[in-house]
Amino acid sequence: MNPRIILAIFIIPLGLIIAAVPQNKTKPYKLTAEQLLSEANTRSQYISPETVADMIVKNDPTLLLIDVRSQDEYEKFSLQGAMNIPITDLLAEQYVEILDQDTKMNVFYSNGTITANEAWMITRQLGYKNNYVLEGGLNYWFEVILNPTEPASTSSDEEFAKYDFRKAASSALGGSTTTIQPANTPLTNSPKPVIKTTPKKKKPAGGC
């Protein structure tokens, strides 16, 4: 048989199949379920409100707060300098550069932690680094930063230091209290996570 016809018999059906099926645009997951589970178990994605407050006060340029609630909620109240990526739009193409990078520390927050955690989990599975979740969400933020309660007089010094810091942060961030605190506010105990840089993301090279 003519080789041309043999070739045609093979490639025309393949061409028809490929023309008929929808294009695969899904992104493969980079992390296995086990890896993700172990990361979630260590709770390493959480970042305490004190750390975040400290970074906001210091205008840390590496911090990017991401509000994953709906646009309505975001417009009503948002943290200072936060941008809005509603969880429904998380995978939109325009946000890939923001979520998948290695120069900033992204902190997701929602009212509680559920939505922010969802966002973290999805982006983490895609292999993105440097995304974190605000511990306790906005609810906890209000409780500890904006309206800190004075610890009982029997509390340890550490508790008081924490309280002082929260008061200071609160005033800096426009909380309810008006007490002016001394300038040398103690630092938080929880260290700020290190930004992980991927060894220069390899771009496919090529050409002649």
């Binding site: 061409g15 490929i18 023309a19």
Partner: peptide, 10 residues
């Protein structure tokens, strides 16, 4: 789509 173009090219 990529697939339709592929078929045309074939």
């Amino acid at each position: 789509s990529d697939g339709v173009f592929a078929l045309l090219l074939i």
